[in-house]
């Protein structure tokens, strides 16, 4: 047995491996870059200094496991919600949405919890609805509604075309902020803001038919009959009159035709009746109004 000194072959092999992999990475750029761009465009750019954005980015390391982790965090937040633990619930909802912002359900349900449920908890914690002064209750409602709306604003960054976010915002303005307004003018402003949000919802792809109906209904309630009429007249021709209505074209092509349930929800006949009611209120003579 003899001993001699030479450079190990593994260095050469390692160099070749790294060089080939780097060359492969370069060669696959035309395939990889569009995929990367497509995936990147689906999520907003992380904000500098945002802890939740940094957390969300960090969760990339979990790959497909992050959705499952977020589910668990959300379930824990739900358990805290059942126990009316306000701070823990909010923290859980924020963490779940930071880990996996793609789940719309987390945002929508979380916003409902913040804006609608938690104000009741706070009122209860301060002595209950009979004890706490109405002004204080309205203040709590406004604070919680603002929290829920801010949460939904955050959701819009990740789901800018989701009609349900605008619907939820409209719902909070209509159901929570309008009654919590200081005066009639404020209440009316909340109604108009809700109507505007239903309108925004109706312009998103895949929006349900009833968004415009709800918009018109709120406009009418706020005394804006002409706008309400125009909205209904505009929407009526697109409403499905039957599940297999060929004139139906508002939803993306890839989506299935509306179900019977959906047609019922659209209620073309009901919309037509409202149009006629509004014509009366606007003083439009019979025969001069909308002709379907």
């Amino acid at each position: 047995m003899k001993f001699s000194l030479t450079l190990p072959r593994s260095f050469r092999t390692g160099t070749v491996v790294v060089a080939v992999l780097a060359a492969t990475g370069w060669a696959l750029r035309p395939l990889a870059e569009p995929i990367r761009e497509e995936l990147r465009s689906a999520e907003p750019a992380p904000r500098l200094g945002s802890l939740s954005d940094a957390l969300g980015q960090g969760m990339n390391v979990l790959g497909g496991l992050r959705a499952m982790l977020a589910d668990f965090i959300y379930l824990k937040a739900c358990l805290d919600w059942e126990d009316t633990r306000l701070d823990q619930t909010i923290a859980g909802l924020r963490l779940a949405t930071a880990v996996d912002p793609s789940s719309l359900y987390f945002w929508l349900n979380g916003a409902s919890m913040m804006a609608l449920d938690m104000s009741n908890w706070r009122v209860d914690a301060e002595g209950g609805a009979y004890k706490v002064p109405k002004a204080r209750q309205r203040q709590i409602d406004r604070e919680q509604a603002a929290l829920g709306l801010a949460f939904l604003e955050e959701a819009r960054r990740f789901h800018p075309r989701a009609p349900t976010i605008y619907e939820k915002m409209a719902f909070i303005h209509h159901i929570r902020l309008r009654p919590a307004a200081e005066d009639e003018a404020g209440a009316n402003a909340e109604l108009l803001r809700a109507a505007e949000l239903y309108h925004l919802a109706s312009t998103q792809p895949g929006a349900p038919f009833y968004d415009v109906r709800l918009q018109a209904s709120l406009l009418k309630e706020a005394g804006h009959f002409r706008e309400a009429y125009d909205a209904l007249v505009k929407i009526y021709p697109t409403l499905p009159k039957a599940p297999d209505d060929p004139g139906y074209a508002r939803r993306p092509i890839k989506n299935p035709p509306p179900s019977e349930n959906e047609v019922m929800a659209a209620q073309a006949g009901d919309v037509f009746g409202r149009i006629r009611d509004l014509e009366k209120q606007l003083g439009i003579a019979p025969g001069q109004g909308f002709q379907p």
Partner: peptide, 16 residues
């Protein structure tokens, strides 16, 4: 036939 021994590039000659 030489076999590398250790990390310093030393070789053991098995067949000469």
């Amino acid at each position: 036939k030489d076999f590398p021994v250790g990390l310093r590039g030393l070789k053991l000659r098995a067949v000469d």
